[in-house]
Amino acid sequence: MNATDIANVLAKAAAFDQRTVGQADILAWHEALHDLEAVDALAAVTRHYASSEQRLMPVHVRRIALDLARERHRVAREQRERLELEATAADAVTVRDRSAEVADLLATLRDRLGPSDPSVLRRAEWVREERLRQRDAVPNPHYQGPPPPGGWPIPAADDRTA
């Protein structure tokens, strides 16, 4: 934006909050907002005052204007992608059933590779874990069974009488 665009943004803000705008204001706001689109900045003023009673600051304009630009780019991208999809769907050469070709390719690969060894195709740490799971279970020497009715530790004889 140039200084004239900034003056227009400040004039629009002044219409909402009765601020006074001078050359210093225009220069300060231009320094903060020079990289924004004028249309987005003007729309940001309206959007800000439609939802807030705070006095407009450059940070408000910047945030809202960037959101508006992002939204505009998203809409344009989605429209471009939709048009590309429609063009692809209309092209009979691009869209065709290739399931038979894929099935033939898989059958050819299966014939070339032959039977496989699952331990070769799997990650080594998973193969190792599976082998450990297949070992004979060894009882835990520290397991003492379920806790007694009073819980652990077993109370002394004189505590049980109390």
Rank of each mutant, 00 (worst) to 15 (best):
residue 3 A to G: 05
residue 6 I to C: 00
residue 10 L to W: 01
residue 13 A to V: 00
residue 14 A to Y: 01
residue 16 F to E: 04
residue 18 Q to P: 01
residue 19 R to F: 04
residue 20 T to R: 10
residue 21 V to C: 02
residue 26 I to P: 00
residue 29 W to E: 00
residue 31 E to V: 02
residue 33 L to C: 03
residue 34 H to W: 11
residue 34 H to G: 03
residue 35 D to M: 07
residue 35 D to V: 05
residue 38 A to K: 04
residue 41 A to Y: 05
residue 47 R to T: 11
residue 54 Q to E: 14
residue 59 V to W: 13
residue 60 H to G: 07
residue 62 R to Q: 04
residue 62 R to C: 02
residue 62 R to D: 03
residue 71 E to C: 01
residue 72 R to C: 01
residue 74 R to W: 07
residue 76 A to V: 01
residue 77 R to I: 00
residue 81 E to W: 05
residue 82 R to K: 15
residue 82 R to Y: 09
residue 82 R to D: 11
residue 82 R to T: 10
residue 83 L to D: 14
residue 84 E to D: 14
residue 85 L to D: 13
residue 89 A to K: 15
residue 89 A to S: 13
residue 91 D to Q: 10
residue 91 D to W: 08
residue 93 V to P: 00
residue 95 V to C: 07
residue 96 R to P: 00
residue 97 D to E: 06
residue 97 D to C: 03
residue 100 A to R: 04
residue 101 E to N: 03
residue 102 V to M: 04
residue 103 A to D: 06
residue 104 D to N: 07
residue 107 A to W: 03
residue 111 D to Y: 13
residue 111 D to N: 14
residue 114 G to Q: 12
residue 114 G to C: 12
residue 118 P to E: 13
residue 118 P to D: 12
residue 121 L to H: 12
residue 124 A to S: 11
residue 127 V to S: 04
residue 131 R to D: 09
residue 132 L to R: 15
residue 136 D to S: 12
residue 139 P to D: 13
residue 141 P to L: 08
residue 143 Y to T: 05
residue 143 Y to A: 12
residue 144 Q to C: 05
residue 146 P to F: 05
residue 146 P to I: 03
residue 148 P to Y: 05
residue 149 P to T: 07
residue 152 W to V: 01
residue 156 A to C: 03
residue 156 A to T: 11
residue 156 A to V: 06
residue 162 A to I: 08
